[in-house]
Nucleic acid binder design. Structure first.
Length: 424
RNA sequence: GGAGAGAUGGCAGAGUGGUCGAUUGCGACGGUCUUGAAAACCGUUGUCUGUAACAGGACCGGGGGUUCGAAUCCCUCUCUCUCCGCCA
């Protein structure tokens, strides 16, 4: 969430940013500021009463000690008056604090200056693209046909044991997926990311920390008996590792990578969007998370984009990188680059990674801070990205690398997969 | 799952109703001494809120209560440790 200090000192900038993000309820800013003003006024009044109570209590202690019971009794009477006043004010204060917080979390992050104006995905900017779109042989098929032709993934079996959107990977399909995960993790750790295996289930505090809760509650699977949530992405457990931490400047930057399954309810999706591997309720993903000092986060974002780009390039898939426009960006992001690979048989672009700088939006809510050289505490900047989401990569590998003889495996994967071809 | 013990500042660890936001040690930072370093000695060293700046206020795992006054007493939740049981 945005800091109240920013709203107070840079209101115009905030409003301008919210407009770019197509946030409609701009009056919320004034509402928050007036709550804040009231809140501070009440707090000052209440603190004054508390101060009087503290002083009087010390005085009573002294009076009791010197045997002046009558004087002590009359002061007790005085204190109880103060306490009544203070009780009223502190109830009001708690209410105002809650109002302010509830309103503040509704404001999205402000977009960076280079974020394009726009409302829809069509207005995203293509930054660059790479690898040629292949010309497929006559008789090429979409990936779901290839999955059953080579017995790689069985969608019906998943439907039987769980439901739609939970595919079963079999034989070479399972092996290819495992090869991709190992390759991605090795690629990330070689670049300096530390590998983590976090829990796949998190508590509500973690959900709040990264912003899935309260608004996107319906997107996560909830384990009611224990009040846990299945993670929708490794970003949630990895980023929350540093919730409520205060670290030294020298500990930054922190770079983490982790492979996890991801669980998403995807309520309301339908049609060609969910065909085959396009959109699933459970899928695998390797994530990278980066924490930096404030002044380093945009250089870190560029480095992450370049890192993911080289990874996609190495898979020999046609791709493009988009800079998302204000209206298409996520709630928490200040700047996002999406990676899409081209699904040649479906003739559409599929998103396989989204790399974002959240600046202090997540860390403010999480209270993740560091002490800078001058001994001042500052909010850490957080960034994350996928590297990469598995199913759509798998789909595009199958479709783009299919030949009449079978599916050829990109060079970088061959050591992990153990072969250069999937054939019947 | 059963029984017991515990949770205090970056870490260790005192503190069982008032002068405790908290003894002390370690660590860290600054200084003296030294050619330099170590040692020794002196000093500083939590977070949040609030203010123009002071002041003021809150915080001893979370929440609630008793009291004029709570780290200290009571209730409750969470977590950790020890023993027993079960188990990949």
């Amino acid at each position: 969430m945005l800091t109240i200090q920013m709203l107070r000192t840079e209101k115009d900038k905030v409003v301008e940013g919210l407009k770019k993000k197509n946030f409609s309820d701009l009056s919320l800013v004034d509402t928050i500021l007036s709550i804040d003003e009231e809140r501070r006024k009440i707090q000052a009044e209440n603190d004054d009463y508390l101060s009087k109570i503290n002083l009087a209590s010390k005085e009573i202690g002294k009076l009791m000690g010197s045997g002046q019971k009558d004087a002590a009794e009359s002061m007790k009477q005085e204190v109880s008056n103060y306490k009544e006043q203070s009780k009223l004010l502190s109830d009001k204060l708690a209410d105002l604090e809650k109002q302010q917080h509830d309103a503040l979390v509704q404001l999205p992050n402000l977009p960076n200056a280079i974020v394009p104006f726009g409302k829809t995905p069509e207005e995203n900017e293509v930054v660059r693209s790479g690898n040629e779109i292949p010309v497929l042989y006559n008789g090429a098929q979409p990936h779901w046909e290839l999955c059953s032709k080579y017995n790689l993934i069985n969608f019906e079996l998943g439907t039987k044991i769980t439901g739609a959107g939970f595919p079963v990977y079999i034989n070479k399909g399972a092996r290819l997926q495992r090869a991709l995960i190992s390759y991605f993790l090795d690629y990330n750790t070689k670049a300096g990311y530390t590998e983590y295996q976090p829990p796949y289930v998190v508590n509500a505090d973690s959900g709040y920390g990264t912003g899935q809760l309260p608004d996107k509650e319906g997107q996560m699977y909830h384990v009611g008996l224990d009040d846990f949530y299945l993670i929708p992405t490794a970003e949630v457990p990895l980023t929350n590792l540093y919730r409520d931490e205060l670290i030294k400047e020298e500990e930054l930057p922190i770079r983490m990578t982790g492979y996890t399954p991801c669980f998403r309810r995807e309520a309301g999706s339908y049609g060609k969007d969910v065909r085959g591997l396009n959109r699933l309720h459970q899928f695998d993903k390797v994530e990278i998370v980066h924490f930096t000092k404030a002044e380093d986060s945009y250089a870190a974002l560029d480095a992450m984009v370049e890192h993911v780009e080289k990874l996609v390039q190495s898979l020999e898939l046609p791709y493009r990188i988009l800079r998302l426009c204000g209206g298409d960006m996520s709630f928490a992001s200040a700047l996002t680059y999406d990676f899409e690979v081209y699904s040649t048989a479906q003739q559409r672009w599929l998103e396989v990674s989204s790399v974002s700088n959240f600046e202090t939006f997540q860390t403010n809510r999480m209270k993740f801070r560091y002490k800078n050289g001058e001994g001042k505490t500052q909010l850490v900047h957080s960034l994350n990205g996928s590297s990469l989401a598995l199913p759509r990569i798998l789909a595009c590998l199958l479709e783009n690398h299919q030949t009449a003889d079978g599916i050829s495996i990109p060079k970088v994967l061959q050591p992990y997969f153990g072969s250069d071809l999937i054939s019947e």
